[in-house]
Protein backbone atom coordinates (compact mmCIF):
# COMPACT_ATOMS: atom_id res chain seq x y z
CA UNK A 1 0.00 0.00 0.00
CA UNK A 2 1.24 3.46 -0.85
CA UNK A 3 2.20 5.53 2.17
CA UNK A 4 0.23 8.69 2.89
CA UNK A 5 3.47 10.45 3.73
CA UNK A 6 6.90 9.47 2.67
CA UNK A 7 9.95 11.46 3.70
CA UNK A 8 13.34 10.77 2.23
CA UNK A 9 16.69 12.15 3.44
CA UNK A 10 15.15 15.45 4.47
CA UNK A 11 17.61 17.96 5.92
CA UNK A 12 17.33 21.56 7.01
CA UNK A 13 20.14 23.89 7.93
CA UNK A 14 19.01 27.41 8.84
CA UNK A 15 20.80 30.47 7.50
CA UNK A 16 22.35 30.91 10.95
CA UNK A 17 24.13 27.58 10.40
CA UNK A 18 21.99 25.75 12.91
CA UNK A 19 21.26 22.22 11.74
CA UNK A 20 17.60 21.55 12.50
CA UNK A 21 17.04 18.33 10.60
CA UNK A 22 19.52 15.72 9.47
CA UNK A 23 18.68 13.16 6.80
CA UNK A 24 15.20 12.35 8.08
CA UNK A 25 13.59 9.39 6.34
CA UNK A 26 10.19 8.21 7.46
CA UNK A 27 7.07 6.59 6.05
CA UNK A 28 3.66 7.16 7.56
CA UNK A 29 0.85 4.74 6.94
CA UNK A 30 -2.63 5.79 6.02
CA UNK A 31 -4.88 6.52 9.02
CA UNK A 32 -2.31 5.81 11.67
CA UNK A 33 -1.61 8.03 14.63
CA UNK A 34 2.05 8.84 14.74
CA UNK A 35 3.64 10.65 17.66
CA UNK A 36 6.86 12.52 17.20
CA UNK A 37 8.59 12.73 20.55
CA UNK A 38 11.45 14.98 21.37
CA UNK A 39 12.64 17.69 23.73
CA UNK A 40 12.35 21.39 22.91
CA UNK A 41 14.49 22.31 19.94
CA UNK A 42 14.76 18.73 18.70
CA UNK A 43 13.40 19.62 15.25
CA UNK A 44 9.78 18.49 15.59
CA UNK A 45 8.27 21.79 14.53
CA UNK A 46 10.84 22.29 11.79
CA UNK A 47 9.95 18.90 10.32
CA UNK A 48 6.24 19.75 10.29
CA UNK A 49 6.96 23.21 8.91
CA UNK A 50 8.96 21.76 6.04
CA UNK A 51 6.18 19.30 5.19
CA UNK A 52 3.57 22.07 5.26
CA UNK A 53 5.56 24.51 3.13
CA UNK A 54 6.43 27.04 5.84
CA UNK A 55 10.13 26.20 5.86
CA UNK A 56 12.16 25.36 2.75
CA UNK A 57 14.17 22.15 3.09
CA UNK A 58 17.90 22.26 2.38
CA UNK A 59 17.91 18.82 0.78
CA UNK A 60 15.82 15.70 0.52
CA UNK A 61 12.27 15.11 -0.62
CA UNK A 62 8.84 14.39 0.79
CA UNK A 63 5.63 13.20 -0.80
CA UNK A 64 2.10 13.51 0.47
CA UNK A 65 -0.04 10.74 -0.99
CA UNK A 66 2.42 10.53 -3.89
CA UNK A 67 2.62 14.29 -4.48
CA UNK A 68 5.95 16.05 -4.02
CA UNK A 69 5.68 18.83 -1.44
CA UNK A 70 7.57 21.27 -3.65
CA UNK A 71 6.97 20.31 -7.29
CA UNK A 72 3.33 19.50 -6.71
CA UNK A 73 2.72 21.69 -3.68
CA UNK A 74 -0.88 22.49 -4.49
CA UNK A 75 -2.10 18.92 -4.34
CA UNK A 76 0.24 18.04 -1.48
CA UNK A 77 -0.80 20.96 0.70
CA UNK A 78 -4.50 20.59 -0.02
CA UNK A 79 -4.31 17.21 1.73
CA UNK A 80 -2.74 18.64 4.88
CA UNK A 81 -4.29 20.36 7.87
CA UNK A 82 -1.98 22.07 10.34
CA UNK A 83 -2.59 23.09 13.93
CA UNK A 84 0.55 24.93 15.00
CA UNK A 85 1.87 25.03 18.51
CA UNK A 86 1.55 28.77 19.08
CA UNK A 87 -1.90 30.21 19.59
CA UNK A 88 -1.94 32.35 16.49
CA UNK A 89 -5.39 33.54 15.57
CA UNK A 90 -6.99 36.56 14.06
CA UNK A 91 -8.42 38.88 16.66
CA UNK A 92 -11.26 40.88 15.19
CA UNK A 93 -12.81 38.24 12.96
CA UNK A 94 -15.63 35.96 14.07
CA UNK A 95 -15.15 32.24 14.52
CA UNK A 96 -17.38 31.57 11.54
CA UNK A 97 -15.51 34.03 9.30
CA UNK A 98 -12.07 32.69 10.11
CA UNK A 99 -13.04 29.05 9.57
CA UNK A 100 -14.82 29.89 6.31
CA UNK A 101 -11.72 31.82 5.24
CA UNK A 102 -9.54 28.77 5.81
CA UNK A 103 -11.73 26.59 3.65
CA UNK A 104 -11.66 29.13 0.84
CA UNK A 105 -7.91 29.53 1.13
CA UNK A 106 -7.52 25.83 0.47
CA UNK A 107 -9.60 26.17 -2.68
CA UNK A 108 -12.68 24.33 -1.46
CA UNK A 109 -16.21 25.37 -2.37
CA UNK A 110 -18.25 26.85 0.49
CA UNK A 111 -19.91 24.20 2.65
CA UNK A 112 -21.84 25.70 5.53
CA UNK A 113 -23.15 22.31 6.68
CA UNK A 114 -19.64 20.92 7.08
CA UNK A 115 -18.40 23.95 8.97
CA UNK A 116 -21.43 23.76 11.23
CA UNK A 117 -20.62 20.10 11.92
CA UNK A 118 -16.97 20.88 12.73
CA UNK A 119 -17.90 23.77 15.02
CA UNK A 120 -20.43 21.60 16.82
CA UNK A 121 -17.93 18.80 17.30
CA UNK A 122 -15.50 21.26 18.82
CA UNK A 123 -18.17 22.87 21.05
CA UNK A 124 -17.74 26.15 19.19
CA UNK A 125 -21.16 26.39 17.62
CA UNK A 126 -22.69 28.78 20.15
CA UNK A 127 -19.63 31.01 19.83
CA UNK A 128 -19.64 31.09 16.04
CA UNK A 129 -20.48 34.80 15.88
CA UNK A 130 -18.06 35.80 18.63
CA UNK A 131 -14.93 37.70 17.81
CA UNK A 132 -11.92 35.49 18.36
CA UNK A 133 -10.30 37.98 20.72
CA UNK A 134 -13.14 37.42 23.19
CA UNK A 135 -12.46 33.68 23.44
CA UNK A 136 -10.39 31.92 26.09
CA UNK A 137 -7.09 30.28 25.23
CA UNK A 138 -8.66 26.82 25.08
CA UNK A 139 -11.41 28.07 22.78
CA UNK A 140 -8.85 29.70 20.51
CA UNK A 141 -7.07 26.39 20.19
CA UNK A 142 -10.37 24.79 19.21
CA UNK A 143 -10.75 27.49 16.55
CA UNK A 144 -7.33 26.62 15.19
CA UNK A 145 -8.32 22.96 15.00
CA UNK A 146 -11.57 23.91 13.26
CA UNK A 147 -9.58 25.94 10.71
CA UNK A 148 -7.29 23.00 10.04
CA UNK A 149 -10.24 20.64 9.56
CA UNK A 150 -12.29 23.02 7.43
CA UNK A 151 -10.85 21.79 4.15
CA UNK A 152 -11.20 18.07 4.97
CA UNK A 153 -7.50 17.18 5.14
CA UNK A 154 -6.23 13.62 4.86
CA UNK A 155 -3.33 14.29 7.19
CA UNK A 156 -3.64 16.38 10.31
CA UNK A 157 -0.54 17.76 11.99
CA UNK A 158 -1.02 18.62 15.64
CA UNK A 159 2.03 20.42 16.96
CA UNK A 160 2.07 20.12 20.76
CA UNK A 161 -1.72 19.96 20.85
CA UNK A 162 -2.06 19.79 24.63
CA UNK A 163 0.58 22.30 25.68
CA UNK A 164 -1.14 24.65 28.12
CA UNK A 165 -4.52 23.02 27.65
CA UNK A 166 -6.95 22.13 30.43
CA UNK A 167 -8.08 18.60 31.21
CA UNK A 168 -11.43 18.94 29.50
CA UNK A 169 -9.99 20.17 26.22
CA UNK A 170 -7.32 17.53 26.40
CA UNK A 171 -9.97 14.83 26.69
CA UNK A 172 -11.98 16.39 23.87
CA UNK A 173 -8.86 16.50 21.79
CA UNK A 174 -8.21 12.81 22.20
CA UNK A 175 -11.81 12.03 21.41
CA UNK A 176 -11.54 14.09 18.26
CA UNK A 177 -8.30 12.43 17.24
CA UNK A 178 -9.86 8.97 17.58
CA UNK A 179 -12.94 9.94 15.63
CA UNK A 180 -10.83 11.49 12.87
CA UNK A 181 -8.77 8.35 12.66
CA UNK A 182 -11.98 6.35 12.32
CA UNK A 183 -12.84 8.57 9.36
CA UNK A 184 -9.53 7.65 7.76
CA UNK A 185 -7.53 10.76 8.64
CA UNK A 186 -3.85 10.24 9.38
CA UNK A 187 -2.68 12.11 12.46
CA UNK A 188 0.84 13.20 13.22
CA UNK A 189 1.33 14.83 16.57
CA UNK A 190 4.35 16.14 18.36
CA UNK A 191 4.77 16.14 22.07
CA UNK A 192 7.34 16.03 24.76
CA UNK A 193 5.08 14.17 27.12
CA UNK A 194 5.60 10.45 27.01
CA UNK A 195 2.16 9.76 28.52
CA UNK A 196 0.51 11.64 25.72
CA UNK A 197 2.20 9.55 23.08
CA UNK A 198 1.47 6.46 25.10
CA UNK A 199 -2.20 7.28 25.31
CA UNK A 200 -2.83 7.96 21.65
CA UNK A 201 -0.22 6.83 19.20
CA UNK A 202 0.14 3.67 17.17
CA UNK A 203 3.77 4.37 16.45
CA UNK A 204 6.30 6.64 18.01
CA UNK A 205 9.27 8.37 16.45
CA UNK A 206 11.92 9.86 18.70
CA UNK A 207 13.75 12.88 17.40
CA UNK A 208 16.73 14.54 19.03
CA UNK A 209 19.07 17.21 17.71
CA UNK A 210 17.47 16.95 14.28
CA UNK A 211 17.98 13.23 13.99
CA UNK A 212 15.29 10.59 14.02
CA UNK A 213 16.79 8.26 16.59
CA UNK A 214 14.20 5.55 16.34
CA UNK A 215 10.76 4.74 15.01
CA UNK A 216 8.92 1.97 16.74
CA UNK A 217 5.54 0.50 17.47
CA UNK A 218 4.28 2.06 20.69
CA UNK A 219 3.99 -1.18 22.65
CA UNK A 220 7.50 -2.25 21.82
CA UNK A 221 8.89 1.14 22.69
CA UNK A 222 7.09 1.37 26.00
CA UNK A 223 8.26 -2.08 26.86
CA UNK A 224 11.81 -1.17 26.01
CA UNK A 225 11.96 2.28 27.51
CA UNK A 226 9.10 2.75 29.90
CA UNK A 227 11.01 2.04 33.12
CA UNK A 228 9.79 2.80 36.61
CA UNK A 229 11.79 3.42 39.74
CA UNK A 230 10.94 2.70 43.36
CA UNK A 231 12.93 4.79 45.83
CA UNK A 232 13.07 3.67 49.44
CA UNK A 233 14.16 6.14 52.13
CA UNK A 234 16.00 4.09 54.73
CA UNK A 235 15.93 4.75 58.47
CA UNK A 236 19.56 3.74 58.91
CA UNK A 237 22.55 4.20 56.63
CA UNK A 238 23.40 1.23 54.41
CA UNK A 239 27.08 0.87 53.62
CA UNK A 240 27.05 -2.25 51.46
CA UNK A 241 24.45 -4.28 49.62
CA UNK A 242 23.54 -7.58 51.29
CA UNK A 243 24.09 -10.57 48.96
CA UNK A 244 20.48 -11.66 49.39
CA UNK A 245 19.39 -8.52 47.50
CA UNK A 246 21.85 -8.87 44.61
CA UNK A 247 19.25 -10.33 42.21
CA UNK A 248 17.16 -7.10 42.41
CA UNK A 249 20.03 -4.99 41.00
CA UNK A 250 19.44 -2.19 43.49
CA UNK A 251 21.58 0.92 43.69
CA UNK A 252 22.48 2.78 46.87
CA UNK A 253 22.53 6.57 46.90
CA UNK A 254 25.80 8.35 47.73
CA UNK A 255 24.72 9.10 51.31
CA UNK A 256 23.62 5.51 51.82
CA UNK A 257 20.12 6.60 52.87
CA UNK A 258 18.23 5.64 49.69
CA UNK A 259 17.78 2.42 47.80
CA UNK A 260 16.71 2.69 44.16
CA UNK A 261 14.95 -0.19 42.42
CA UNK A 262 14.43 0.07 38.66
CA UNK A 263 11.81 -2.15 37.02
CA UNK A 264 9.58 -2.25 33.97
CA UNK A 265 5.87 -1.98 34.27
CA UNK A 266 5.06 -5.45 33.08
CA UNK A 267 7.33 -7.24 35.53
CA UNK A 268 7.31 -5.32 38.72
CA UNK A 269 8.58 -7.78 41.39
CA UNK A 270 8.06 -5.14 44.06
CA UNK A 271 6.43 -7.60 46.40
CA UNK A 272 9.40 -9.94 46.24
CA UNK A 273 11.80 -7.08 46.86
CA UNK A 274 9.90 -5.95 49.95
CA UNK A 275 9.92 -9.50 51.31
CA UNK A 276 13.67 -9.76 50.74
CA UNK A 277 14.26 -6.39 52.42
CA UNK A 278 12.30 -7.54 55.47
CA UNK A 279 14.29 -10.77 55.55
CA UNK A 280 17.54 -8.78 55.39
CA UNK A 281 16.26 -6.62 58.24
CA UNK A 282 16.36 -3.39 56.26
CA UNK A 283 13.54 -1.03 57.16
CA UNK A 284 12.53 2.21 55.52
CA UNK A 285 10.59 5.29 56.55
CA UNK A 286 9.04 6.27 53.24
CA UNK A 287 8.88 5.30 49.58
CA UNK A 288 8.20 6.96 46.29
CA UNK A 289 7.88 5.77 42.70
CA UNK A 290 9.06 7.58 39.63
CA UNK A 291 8.20 6.91 36.00
CA UNK A 292 10.98 7.44 33.50
CA UNK A 293 10.66 10.81 31.86
CA UNK A 294 11.47 11.50 28.28
CA UNK A 295 14.71 12.96 29.49
CA UNK A 296 15.64 9.63 31.09
CA UNK A 297 14.71 7.90 27.87
CA UNK A 298 16.93 10.24 25.93
CA UNK A 299 19.82 9.60 28.21
CA UNK A 300 19.37 5.90 27.68
CA UNK A 301 18.84 6.29 23.94
CA UNK A 302 21.86 8.50 23.46
CA UNK A 303 23.89 6.07 25.53
CA UNK A 304 22.61 3.16 23.42
CA UNK A 305 23.33 4.79 20.07
CA UNK A 306 27.02 5.26 19.28
Amino acid sequence: MQHILSISHLSKTYASGRIALQEISLNIQRSEIFALLGPNGAGKTTLISVLCGIVTPTSGTAEVDGHDIIKDYRTARSKIGLVPQELTTDAFETVWATVTFSRGLFGKSPNAALIEKILKELSLWDRKDSKIMTLSGGMKRRVMIAKALSHEPQILFLDEPTAGVDVELRRDMWRLVSSLRDQGVTIILTTHYLEEAEEMADRIGVINKGELILVQDKRELMHRLGKKQLILLLDTRLTHMPDSLAKHALTISADGMELVYTYDKERAGVRELLDDLAAANISFTDMQTKQSTLEDIFVSLVKDTP
Binding site: C52, G53, I54, Y73, R74, T75, A76, R77, S78, I80, L82, P84, E86, T88, T89, D90, A91, S102, L105, F106, G107, K147
Partner: peptide, 14 residues
Protein backbone atom coordinates in the same frame (compact mmCIF):
# COMPACT_ATOMS: atom_id res chain seq x y z
CA UNK B 1 2.91 40.04 13.30
CA UNK B 2 0.22 37.79 14.81
CA UNK B 3 1.68 34.62 13.31
CA UNK B 4 -1.40 33.72 11.26
CA UNK B 5 0.85 33.89 8.19
CA UNK B 6 1.46 30.17 8.80
CA UNK B 7 -1.89 29.48 7.20
CA UNK B 8 -1.14 31.50 4.07
CA UNK B 9 2.22 29.80 3.65
CA UNK B 10 0.86 26.30 4.18
CA UNK B 11 -2.14 26.75 1.88
CA UNK B 12 -2.16 25.57 -1.74
CA UNK B 13 -1.84 29.15 -2.90
CA UNK B 14 0.74 30.47 -5.36
Amino acid sequence: FTGTIYELLSAPVS
